Amino acid sequence: LGRAPGTDQRTMQALRRQRSGEVDDFPADVRELIRYFGDQPGAVQAVPGQGLEVPVWLLGSSLYSAQLAAAMGLPFGFASHFAPGLLLQALELYRAQFQPSARWPKPYAVVCINVVAADTEREARFLFTTLQQQFLRLYRGDAGKLPLPVQELGEEWSPRELMAMEQTLARSLVGDRDRVRHGLQALLAETGADELMFNGPIVSHEARLRSFEIAAELMQSL
C-alpha cells in the first residue's frame, strides 16, 4: 500500500480520488484494511476477505511510509527504482524504529530497483534508453506508452532534464551478466535487503523475459 494515487492529477480526478480534507488519514486507512482481513467482524464485513489475514506491506519513496511501517510492525518496500536518494536513510529509520507485531517480530525490507540485463552490455544499454526516455517525457508531462529504444538520446533534451533523469535512475542496474551480478552484490551488501524487487520496462517482450531470466539466475547464484 502507498499513499500516492499512482497516476497524474487528471487521471486521479477522473477516478474521483480527491481528498476531502487536509488531515492525513492514511494510517487509519491501513488499519481499517487490516481489520477487514482479520477475524474480528466490524460494522462492515469483507466477504470474501474476513479471516484470510492477507499480508499488508507498505510501499514508500520517502521517509513517511518507512516510519509508519515501523510503528505498525509491517514489512516495508522502498521504491528506489524512481526515488533512490532516500533509500539508505529510509531503511535505517525503518529498522531503528521498528515495533514488533504478531506477524512480523522483526523488520523486513524490500528494495525495488530497475534491472535491464542482456547478453551483451551494448544491448542492455540500448534497451535502457526506453526507461530513460520514459522519465524524460514524464518531466515534460508527456505520459504514455513505453517509447521504443534508440541508439542514443536526441539533442532535444536539456542538460537539466538529463541530469534529473540520471539522478532518478541512479540505482538502476544495466548491463550484461557480470555487470549486473556485481551490482546486485553491492546493493545487497549496502542495504541488507531481505528481498529485491525488479522493475524492467522493456518494450520487447522477449527481451524483457530474458532480462528477468538473467536477473533471477543471478539471484539464485547469490
Rank of each mutant, 00 (worst) to 15 (best):
T129Y: 02
S158V: 11
P159N: 04
D119Q: 15
G144S: 14
T129N: 03
Q167W: 02
A170N: 02
P147G: 09
A143I: 14
W157G: 04
F128S: 06
A124R: 01
Q132G: 04
D142R: 15
E166M: 06
E161L: 01
G154I: 01
L169A: 05
P149D: 09
P149A: 11
L136S: 01
F135R: 07
Q132V: 02
A164Y: 08
Q151D: 08
E161M: 06
G141Y: 09
A143Y: 14
P147A: 12
E152W: 03
R140F: 00
D119P: 13
R122V: 11
P149R: 04
E155M: 04
R160D: 15
R122D: 13
E156P: 05
R122W: 07
A164V: 10
A164Q: 10
E155V: 04
E161A: 05
E156F: 05
T120S: 15
L131W: 05
Y139W: 12
A164M: 09
E161P: 00
M165F: 01
E156I: 02
A124K: 06
M163F: 06
Q151M: 06
S172F: 01
E152V: 07
T129K: 03
Q134S: 14
P149T: 02
F135P: 02
Q134E: 11
L146T: 11
L148W: 11
K145Y: 12
R160H: 12
P147Q: 11
L162W: 00
T129F: 03
R125K: 11
R122T: 13
L138F: 15
A143C: 13
A143H: 14
P149K: 09
W157S: 04
L127H: 10
E121N: 15
A124H: 03
R171P: 00
P159T: 07
R137D: 13
F126L: 09
L169H: 03
E156T: 08
P147E: 00
G144W: 00
S158H: 02
P147H: 08
L146G: 12
L136E: 00
